[in-house]
Amino acid sequence: MLLDLREVHAHYGRAHILQGVTLSVAPGEVLALLGRNGAGKSTTMKAIMGLVRPSGGEVRFEGTDLAGREPHEIARAGIGYVPEERRIFTELTVAENLSVGRRPPRAGLEPWSEARIFEIFPPLAAMRARAGGRMSGGEQQMLTIGRTLMGNPRLLLLDEPSEGLAPVIVERMADAILRLKREGLTVLLSEQNLHFARIVADRAAVLEKGRIRWEGAMDALMADDAARAEFLAV
C-alpha cells in the first residue's frame, strides 16, 4: 500500500471530527472519499497533509509514519495536496504559481515541467504571464492542480475537485484525472458529486461522522442502493 491511515483522530477545538479513520490507498489507483458535508472528508485530507495535526493514529506513506510532521516535510515526502478552495496566489502569474510548487525530480517518475503541465491543461499555456487572480474558476482549478504536480508527487490529494465548476468544466477535469492515472499517479479525491466519482474512481470509501462506514469497488457502491441511501442520502 502506498498510503495507510490507521485509527486517525483529529479535533477542531473541542469538536472530535475524525474518530478513527482507517483507510488504504494502493499504488496506481484512484480512490474516492465520499460522504456528507461535515463527515470529515476535508479534515482527512488535511490530517494526511499535516494541515490539521492528528490527535491520534498513524499516517503511513511508503511505510513511514508522517503523523505530526510539518506540511512541508509531508509534501517533500511525495504527497501533493490540491485544496478545495483552490488557493492560487492571485498576485503571482501562472508561471510564478507553477514555480512555487517546483521540487526536485523523484526517482522513477517522469519529472513534471511547465511544458508537460500545459500539455495536460492546454488553456494555461496561453496565459503564462497572466495574474492568477484574473482567471476563471475552471482555469484556476487547472492551475492549482498543475502547481501541485510541479512538486512531482507520488500521491495526489484532490479535495472536491468538481465543487463549484460548470458541468462542462467538470467533464474536462474528469478527463485530466483519468490521464494522470494512466501516467501512473495515485489519486485520493474527496467528492460530493457521485456522478463525477463514478467516472474517475476505481474504489470508494464512505465517511460518516468521522469513521469509514463502507469501502469497496466504485461499481459495487453504484450497485448497492441500500448503502448509498444510508450513507450518502441519495
Binding site: 458541468p167 462542462v168 467538470v170 467533464e171 458529486n193
Partner: peptide, 9 residues
Amino acid sequence: VYLGTGHTH
C-alpha cells in the same frame, strides 16, 4: 456552453 453531455450531473 454549460451543461455538457450530462455525465457528471
